[in-house]
Design a protein around this nucleic acid. Structure first.
Length: 481
RNA sequence: GGCGGCAUAGCCAAGUGGUAAGGCAACGGUCUGCAAAACCGUCAUCCACCAGUUCGAAUCUGGUUGCCGCCUCCA
């Protein structure tokens, strides 16, 4: 199957072919760095991280640009509140962004440009738009004239006339059309600013993406992504700016991810229910968060609740438990797999790729993992595993690890994963592990003496302490429930 | 008011023309001293509702109802 991608522009799934064979030029709108990243940022970044990894895995050479908006009203306001310099504030949150994303095992984009480092390109682009008569200057501001761009509203399916009818915005009398938007804003006192032909000022929000994408990716991008909310006005305005300047189509495939709700409510300032990534990661393993986020299709809204995260955790445990079982049974480990390279593609990988080829259907792809977990466990349950069966198990192991590599999960060795899980459980529940060990030992002694009553009593006591017991061939293990 | 999206079992969720993946929960079984884990089995004659197109629809069309998002900063 060939890769199909849902294109916001056509509202259809289309066969994906890059403009230049074998190369993909992709731009995704990054954060405005004025506050900590919330779980919604995590979804967007993780979704496009997986898209980036998958495109590379199927053989594309991908140039992926994700920007930082590091100058804007929100940053300035916040910096003023805190009484610090706006660039200090931006720097602080860029660092936090990296901390969060590294924790979430997000790969770095190929290029991660900042708006403030591309003022020259922005000014040049605005000058071009002015010279074409598409942008106009009023006092120290420059506006884009939406009437000058034929296709305005095409991405979001809006018509200017319709929007006028329901206009709820304050009309700035200096604008030719209420929907004209700022390309350049003149500086107020004490605001960060740069020299320009129109006086001191700073770029508007939308222009930086047009300037930086053409700088690094050319006039026509294969893929441009971002959250659904950016469709209007941000991406609509980007199209208007870029196409007006270059005269070429700006983006071939628009990809937009859905929102994250918290307990069925939209995250919003008024509800005060913003869930920050760093706080979520205090409670859950980063791979649990990734597995959760990817278990729904990227375009659908997703509801973030404790229950669903716990389910994702159970699922991740299940996959790691299988990996551990296979490693014990076959003596293989991920070092050996790595050395062997990613030769050969088993059935599981092929099914995974089919799911991903259908508009990056990671939800279906995850279903395939669990399906495989079950069938491999079934093989491992056999007393005598045939060499043929063992080969299938090994191939399954390779495939699952390779899939994990695309989804950004299963990066740890199972023993490390489970040990860390136990340790964090001990810390969170302030559990006295020496005491538990002692009780488990006592129970083992009782079992040896076939004193079942005593053994079961101890197990019940442990259970009351939320400790689960597992008797295996290698001895008794305990985990936190 | 304008534009767009969604509605699948107790819950989560794939499936977009060929007769309902997967996960969680529940129940029965194999295994086990008993458990746990793993596995096996049961769990939607049916996909919000109504009409239509079709040999055939959860999937297409029209309508109804309900929920949600965007139109103002927002991933």
């Amino acid at each position: 199957m060939t890769l199909h991608i849902y294109n916001t522009l056509s509202r259809k799934k289309e066969i994906f072919k890059p403009l230049i064979e074998g190369k993909v030029y992709m731009y995704v709108c990054g954060p405005t760095v004025y506050d900590s990243c919330h779980i919604g940022h995590a979804r967007s970044v993780v979704v496009f991280d997986v898209i980036f990894r998958y495109l590379k895995a199927i053989g594309f050479e991908v140039t992926y640009v994700r920007n930082f908006t590091d100058v804007d009203d929100k940053i300035i306001n916040r910096a003023n509140e805190l009484g610090i310099n706006s660039s200090e504030l931006a720097e602080k949150y860029i660092q936090e962004f990296y901390d969060d994303m590294d924790a979430l095992n997000v790969e770095r984009a190929t290029i991660e440009p900042k708006a403030t480092e591309h003022i020259d390109q922005i000014v040049t682009l605005i000058e071009k738009l002015i010279s074409k008569g598409i942008a106009y200057q009023v006092d120290g501001d420059v506006y884009f004239s939406v009437n000058s761009f034929q296709g305005y509203g095409r991405l979001s399916g809006r018509k200017l006339e319709d929007m006028m009818a329901g206009a709820r915005i304050k009309v700035d009398q200096r604008k030719k059309n209420p929907f004209d938007f700022a390309l350049w804003k003149s500086a107020k006192p004490d605001e960060p600013c740069w020299e320009s032909p129109w006086g001191k000022g700073r770029p508007g929000w939308h222009i930086e993406c047009s300037a930086m994408s053409s700088e690094y990716l050319g006039d026509t991008l294969d893929i441009h992504g971002g959250g659904k909310d950016l469709i209007f006005p941000h991406h609509e305005n980007e199209i208007a700016q870029s196409e007006s300047a270059s005269g070429k189509p700006f983006v071939r495939f628009w990809i937009h991810n859905g929102f994250v709700n918290i307990n069925q409510e939209k995250m919003s300032k008024s509800l005060g229910n913003f869930l920050m990534i760093k706080d979520v990661l205090k409670e859950y393993h980063p791979e649990v968060v990734r597995l959760f986020l990817l278990s729904k299709h990227y375009r659908s809204p997703v509801d973030f609740t404790d229950q669903f995260l716990k389910e994702a955790e159970l699922g991740l445990d299940k996959i790691y438990a299988l990996l551990e079982r296979i490693e014990k049974a076959t003596g293989s480990g991920r070092e050996k797999e790595a050395a062997a390279g990613k030769s050969g593609q088993g059935d599981i990988w092929v099914r995974f790729a089919e799911a991903m080829d259908d508009d990056f259907n990671s939800a279906q792809a995850i279903g395939i993992i669990f399906d495989s977990v079950k069938s491999i466990n079934r093989r491992l349950n056999n007393k005598n595993i045939s060499s043929e069966s063992m080969q299938i198990i090994k191939k399954g192991y390779e495939d699952i690890l390779r899939i994990g590599n695309i989804l950004g999960i299963l990066t740890e060795s199972p023993s490390v994963y489970f040990a860390a899980k136990k340790l964090s459980g001990i810390e969170k529940g302030s559990i006295d592990s020496d005491l538990i060990d002692k009780m488990v030992l006592e129970r083992s002694t009782a079992r040896k003496e076939k004193d079942w009553a005593r053994a079961d009593k101890i197990r019940q006591e442990l259970l009351d302490m939320n400790i689960l017991i597992e008797d295996t061939a290698e001895g008794t293990l305990w985990t936190i429930g």
